[in-house]
Design a protein around this nucleic acid. Structure first.
Length: 569
RNA sequence: GCCCUUGUAGCUCAGUGGAUAGAGCAACAGUUUCCUAAACUGUGGGUCGGCAGUUCGAGUCUGCCCGAGGGCACCA
């Protein structure tokens, strides 16, 4: 045991309660009851409070192999359970043979003191200590302003990165983009044609080109600066460059509004150019796959022989034009993630890219990379509802819903919150009217209100009583609390660290949203039922500590979600 | 046709093989001499898309069928 562990008594959040407290207790009981089994001991929180705080189904699991009645077995196990004083209040058997544990109120409230002690660090862990992670998200090419759909992936990725940082991961947030492909060529051409219109020419604008108004805006800005001097030029590159820098600036600005940040922008084009070795990253992929006999040449193109892996068709890596298809740089890009030494690699992208990653993974596997390190988070699409009418996101037509417009409409907090308040696999229905509403129907306001209410309470308490729980360490007062509402709140606070690890395991920040909503609800009930400032001093101070601990957890959670924590509303 | 995601209350959605399937909103009925009523309490509401299977136990796992979204390019 190291010295820091001695300085700080063990933190009894639910994760540690399950693994470090209940597990050994049950293991020892089985041992002394002479029950040997290879069945795993499962400890869970019953959905219904009346079945205790924790329960185990071990008696059910081993009943068959022991040919015994599960309830009798449970009885026998209970007889052998030993536990420290002031921890467990009651143990009983219910249902088919579940063993249910009820925690002693003192035990719960003592643990709440640890929340106050850890403060902003409460919930942090060390599973990522000393490890690096790359989280890639947004990665939109600079062909137009960000759409609402991209926003969902951006917030999802940002929250995943935030979550991982709480566990000690050194996270690099990366944006992968391409400014060299065919789409960018079309972008430059689109701007040039609109520019010519400004110069007074009548042009035919192809339907394959970008239709959005922003193309006209860019063309106009070029016209204002350059006049018609470029009219005779057919240099598309110039228009492309201008468009790219303007669009990229707008994308970054939009992301900034949502506090979505990146540490690294990876330009796909660097994979095309020769490195020190004189060979491009793309070429190295071809060479390496060739050595493994997964490259074929026919129809004038170079193919990844995925039919050898049981797929229906081979996949083009180099087109007959000599240009790589998107797949080749994708593979090369992922190799750089390994070469840069990341321990964990997280890719966040939309459902439209769902067919892309299996090929990349196959190629990486063939080349000997450990694809277990790669985690994929795919988010389903977004539809928006305005005035009860569902509007489907539409793509390159120029009538796609713009993320900026949505932020203008409902604000950054609601935008972020709504994007992650549903599971990523669920098709998100973004109700714009609901997001704008400043009432309890709007879940983001419900949560923020709980925080503001606590702030207000602490302000008033200080003013009326002179007591500031932030400047007091009499946390043992918490042990005076034992009403159902207080215990429920204290118990909920202990769940926070486990929710973080669950969210990371599932790459699902939505778990945090749900948890925080439940926490706010339990707090409001406590606030309703327990008078605080008017209570007698010790109880009053204890309740202020409980409120302060709640505010801490809300703040810590809001920080991960990227939602503001208002002091008053 | 093939692949991925998905189908749970009127609506939007939770639900790690476990106990009588939950929450929010909406509906209805209540709560304020008292710290923010932007809150709280209660009531009603379900063939978990359908059919089979796996097992002590299935909303959860498997197969088939039906519906929804997305993808199946020498676009990215």
């Amino acid at each position: 045991m190291n010295s820091s562990a001695n300085k700080h008594p063990r933190l009894f959040d639910k994760r540690t309660l399950m693994h470090d407290f209940f597990l050994p207790i049950i293991q020892n009981a089985l041992l002394s009851a002479n029950i040997i089994t290879d069945k795993p001991i499962q400890i869970e929180q019953p959905a219904d409070k009346k079945f205790g705080d924790f329960s185990t189904n071990i008696a059910l699991l081993i009943a068959k192999e022991r040919k015994k009645n599960p309830r009798e077995l449970a009885q026998e196990i209970i007889r052998h359970i030993v536990f420290p004083p002031e921890t467990i209040a009651k143990i009983d058997i219910a249902g088919a043979g579940f063993i249910n544990f009820y925690l002693a109120p003192v035990f719960i409230m003592r643990s709440v003191g640890n929340v106050l002690r850890d403060g902003a660090a409460y919930g942090q862990g060390n599973t990522g200590q000393g490890k690096t992670a790359l989280v890639e998200y947004v990665s939109a090419n600079p062909t137009g302003p960000l759409t609402i759909g991209r926003g969902r992936g951006g917030v999802l990725g940002d929250c995943i990165a935030n979550l991982m940082e709480t566990q000690g991961y050194n996270v690099t947030r990366e944006y992968y983009f391409n400014d060299a492909g065919k789409q960018m060529q079309i972008l430059g051409e689109s701007v040039r044609l609109r520019f010519l219109e400004y110069c007074g020419e009548t042009v035919e604008f192809p339907t394959t080109h970008y239709q959005g108004d922003y193309i006209r805006d860019i063309a106009e800005s070029i016209y204002k600066e350059e006049g018609n001097t470029l009219q005779s030029s057919d240099d598309v590159l110039l228009f492309k460059k201008r468009a790219e820098s303007i669009i990229f600036a707008s994308i970054r600005k939009t992301l900034e509004r949502l506090a979505i940040r990146h540490d690294s922008f990876f330009n796909e084009h660097t994979l095309y150019t020769a490195e020190k070795t004189g060979v491009s990253a793309n070429q190295r992929v071809i060479d390496a796959l060739y050595r493994q006999a997964f490259i074929g040449e026919y129809d004038g193109a170079t193919w990844f022989l995925t039919t050898k892996l049981g797929q229906e068709k081979d996949k083009v890596l180099i087109k007959s034009s000599g240009e790589p298809s998107y797949r080749l740089p994708d593979i090369a890009y992922h190799i750089t993630k390994f070469e840069r030494g990341f321990d964990t690699i997280v890719n966040v992208f939309g459902a439209d890219h769902i067919d892309e990653y299996p090929d990349v993974l196959e190629a990486l596997k063939i080349l000997g990379y450990d694809t277990e390190r790669i985690k994929i988070a795919i988010n389903q699409f977004v539809t928006t509802t305005v005035d009860g009418q569902t509007i489907k996101m539409s793509t390159r037509k120029g009538n796609a819903d713009l993320l900026d417009d949505l932020i203008d409409d409902v604000g950054a907090d609601a935008t972020r919150f709504f994007f992650i308040m549903r599971g990523k696999d669920s098709h998100l229905n973004f109700d714009v009217e609901l997001a704008k509403r400043q009432s309890k129907e709007n879940p983001v306001f419900y949560l923020q209100y709980a925080h503001a209410r606590i702030c207000s309470l602490l302000r008033l308490a200080l003013q009326e009583t002179g007591f500031d729980p932030q400047n007091s360490s009499e946390h043992e007062l918490l042990q005076l609390l034992n009403s159902p509402a207080e215990l429920q709140l204290g118990f909920a606070l202990l769940d926070y660290p486990r929710m973080i690890t669950t969210s990371i395991r599932l790459l699902e920040p939505q778990k945090m949203v749900e948890y925080l909503h439940d926490l706010a609800e339990v707090f409001h009930r406590f606030y309703q039922e327990c008078p605080i400032i008017k209570a007698e001093p010790d109880i009053r101070n204890a309740r202020l500590f409980l409120a302060l601990a709640t505010r801490q957890v809300l703040r810590n959670g809001f920080k991960i979600l990227g939602v503001s924590a208002p002091e008053s509303m």
